[in-house]
Design a protein around this nucleic acid. Sequence first.
DNA 1: CGTAATGTTGAGCGCATTCAAGCCGGGTGG
DNA 2: CCACCCGGCTTGAATGCGCTCAACATTACG
Lengths: 220, 220
Amino acid sequence: MPVDLSREELERIDELVGARRKIKRGTTLFRNGEKFTSLYAIRTGFFKTCVAAEDGRDQVTGFQMAGEVVGLDGIVHDHHTCDAVALEDAEVCVMPFDRIEELSREVTSLQRHVHKIMSREIVREHGVMLLLGSMRAEERLATFLLNLVQRLHARGFSQSELILRMTREEIGSFLGLKLETVSRTFSRFVEDGIVEVKQRHVRILNTDALREIVNLKSAG
Amino acid sequence: MPVDLSREELERIDELVGARRKIKRGTTLFRNGEKFTSLYAIRTGFFKTCVAAEDGRDQVTGFQMAGEVVGLDGIVHDHHTCDAVALEDAEVCVMPFDRIEELSREVTSLQRHVHKIMSREIVREHGVMLLLGSMRAEERLATFLLNLVQRLHARGFSQSELILRMTREEIGSFLGLKLETVSRTFSRFVEDGIVEVKQRHVRILNTDALREIVNLKSAG
DNA sequence: CGTAATGTTGAGCGCATTCAAGCCGGGTGG
DNA sequence: CCACCCGGCTTGAATGCGCTCAACATTACG
């Protein structure tokens, strides 16, 4: 948790980090219906969260990487309402929510931090709603790639190269597209010289072109 | 705020309700870019919240009614990232966020309540993402109507009759559809005897049929 | 090395959109 | 009181984007 804190505050916050937990690729950190006890800070690895409709269809609601927090959905009803699945071997810090609430009554900056994390998630989801509600396939994929590479860059990775940890189907589920459409859209980007794609390895050749696709939208 | 509280706690919470504010129909409670200071509990009236893309398109992210809270988006960056527009004359309680944080350090049940409100919003948005990402027009509108009537019923209104406070275009924006599609879908429901529609007045004749539409989905 | 999972590509279709015309209802001013 | 206007709504016809279905290619993995 990268916040400005005094040493004393930091020591207090160490208290709330309970056990660490390793999650094997393909297994769940928590599942829809399970009792909610903790938030999880991702240390390493990559997750997806998804909600399910009764008929079996599911919607990926987000992809999370190191430094991000999952589990906020469970607070309202004391039970989780989505699944968190590791897309590669991962490790998380388990932060019992009781402790978080207890500590954030004493440490103002932690309280503030928790509020911001939740608000950030709300704002992020607003962005996804905009994407799902009004963008076309190319815009969605361009937005997705830019967002992903930006978050990776903030973690010290390349601005132009990335490895997708998720399948075309999972990307499609997140973006409200079928996997074939995702694949075709990738191919169009490749034809246009915007990216190189070799399976899950993506190299962005022309970031500005991606930005244009996002900004032109239907106005073009 | 309907929570179980001791008398003392209730008195403390009264402290955080600052002024009330009246919002005329068509005007904004807050706007994208404005400084964030407070959350707002809706006392009367009906709001929409919407985010804007650079090119002018906007996406309605939700409709809010009495008893619901708006403004959570502003916490992360100390500025609002969406607009809240009154769809009819409305009145809200202004709750300065400083006071909320202060008080919720002392009143455990308030702290818990604030966390639940934010988590509830996150879960609600998951549902909208599922809708936008994987449902067809009929399912979206059926889901929308059922949700609206259920929330109204919880406030003492009819289970089967409602007045839409928003235009077809606003419904469409929320559901990721064009206004013509919303209109056509309403017409289809009318043909099928599921609802009666006279402008913004809607009477649900067959709730089960709406539920079926939602649950059958593409599996049908 | 063989099998299953994942990804690519093609052809045809269908649902929602686009474009366009007309309708309804409420409000305003003559 | 009626004529008019304008925003909101409905409906029709044609288009097109993304989906479905299907075949094949590639990769991962036991």
